[in-house]
């Protein structure tokens, strides 16, 4: 009998702690599938962030290192510079990567560190219960913008992919979304391509994944997926920002 569905080998057989309807689980699966298909689990080292995914070192079957808040790109730099033949990825949320870790991600990109960054953008801090993130949309209500994010007071959301694309360092940057099957397939291809870019030694690769946070958005899972499409994609357009023509 043909197997049509199985858990990826690169994921440990343990229950995940993520909330119902959260797309972290899908993102993890896409990373794990890419690792399986490229047969790199034995030489891959992942770096976990601070945020909801803080303990995904328990979920990925490759060697894992837990990093301080925002510092994953620096930690990954230390790893990759020590083990240039190995595959190194970070998995970071928007608070981790685009607020406290802005310096680290910008400079890792500028140096074109040959690492892969999986960047989860759900426009909010999940783990600490729903505060404004650097990617929070204008007008969005969070626990620290209870009247909605006001640009005159809290500034504007950061488009990370576009910002990093202004640098000469990155080899591949793409923004994808997990709001429907078609887009999940595209996201899968992007994640896999990012790893292939690293394997080919082309330099820094980053996939920004638009994700949900039903719990902190106060929406049910289905409404959450719709919010990505209706509210987030207009501000965070999908597409390849660097490396569209890159063949790996």
């Amino acid at each position: 009998m043909a197997i049509v569905y199985k858990a990826p080998d690169a994921l440990c057989d343990v229950p995940m702690h993520y909330c119902p309807g959260c797309t972290h689980g899908i993102a993890h699966r896409l990373v794990a599938e890419a690792i399986d298909e490229l047969e790199i689990e034995g030489k891959t080292i992942g770096v976990s962030p601070v945020g909801c995914a803080y303990n995904n070192y328990l979920y990925f079957n490759c060697d894992m290192i837990q990093a301080a808040h925002g510092r994953a790109p620096a930690v990954a730099t230390g790893v990759k510079r020590s083990l240039p033949e190995n595959i190194v990825f970070t998995y970071q949320g928007d608070g981790d990567l685009a607020a406290i870790g802005t310096a680290e991600i910008v400079h890792a990109a500028a140096r074109s560190e040959n690492i892969t960054v999986i960047f989860i953008n759900n426009t909010i801090y999940g783990m600490t219960s729903g505060q404004m993130a650097p990617t929070t949309l204008l007008g969005q209500v969070t626990t620290t913008t209870p009247y909605g994010r006001d640009a005159s007071y809290s500034g504007f959301p950061i488009r990370v992919s576009e910002m990093l694309a202004t640098l000469e360092g990155p080899a591949y940057i793409e923004r994808v979304s997990l709001h429907d099957i078609k887009n999940i397939k595209k996201a899968k291809a992007a994640v896999k391509k990012a790893f292939k870019v690293q394997i080919a030694g082309k330099g820094f690769s980053l996939v920004e994944i638009l994700s949900t946070c039903p719990t902190n958005w106060g929406l049910n899972p289905v409404e959450s997926l719709k919010r990505i499409e209706k509210e987030m994609i207009p501000h965070y357009p999908l597409g390849v920002f660097v490396g569209a023509d890159l063949e790996v």
Partner: peptide, 21 residues
């Protein structure tokens, strides 16, 4: 490997990464 980091914070976290290996 000699690497000039973007900050002391980054440097010590690079140390963390290299030491982890």
């Amino acid at each position: 490997v000699f690497l000039q980091a973007e900050s002391e914070v980054a440097a010590i976290n690079m140390v963390y990464g290299a030491a982890s290996t």
